[in-house]
Amino acid sequence: MREITVRVNGQERKRLVKDNELLLDFLRERLEVRSVKAACWRGECGLCTVKLGDHLVKSCLVLAVEADGKEVETVEGITPDGELTPIQKAFVSHGAAQCGFCTPAWVLATHELLQANPHPSEAELTEATSGLVCRCGTYNQIREAVEEVSQARPRLAKENLASS
């Protein structure tokens, strides 16, 4: 066991952790940050994605001790004033969540992408989210949501769905 100090969503957290404790378990079990999910526990699905320092990481592949002295951001941290961010609003209006289990990871990843690159191309979006999976298949809706925010060009989600 050793003591680490991590700033999680702007709050300093000091905890004793096991040497082999995953950042995923540290966040979920010790700090009860429940937006961080897991579906594969080996870096394939991306549901445990968090921001560590300046980078998105899969928290099942990072030890808690590696986060010592660093900042961690999860989806709880991107809405400091309580108001939904533009990408969150766009996810809602475009129906970019079905079961929702992977949604926090997608919101965080696309939010960070749009912070770093306000106008990502389709290839950049695909590349930036290549580590994430959505079994319900909301990829089209996520694409539309990102497009709306990036181009500030409102587009109805049902646009394609003309009644015949």
Binding site: S35, K37, V75, V92, G95, G100, T103, P104
Partner: peptide, 21 residues
């Protein structure tokens, strides 16, 4: 009408709780 599902806000904010949680 294209009414978005009302539970999406919980999903995008990470506050939708599953049995896993």
């Amino acid at each position: 009408k294209a009414v978005p599902p009302e539970d999406t806000v919980r999903k995008v904010t990470g506050t939708a709780l599953y049995t896993y949680d």
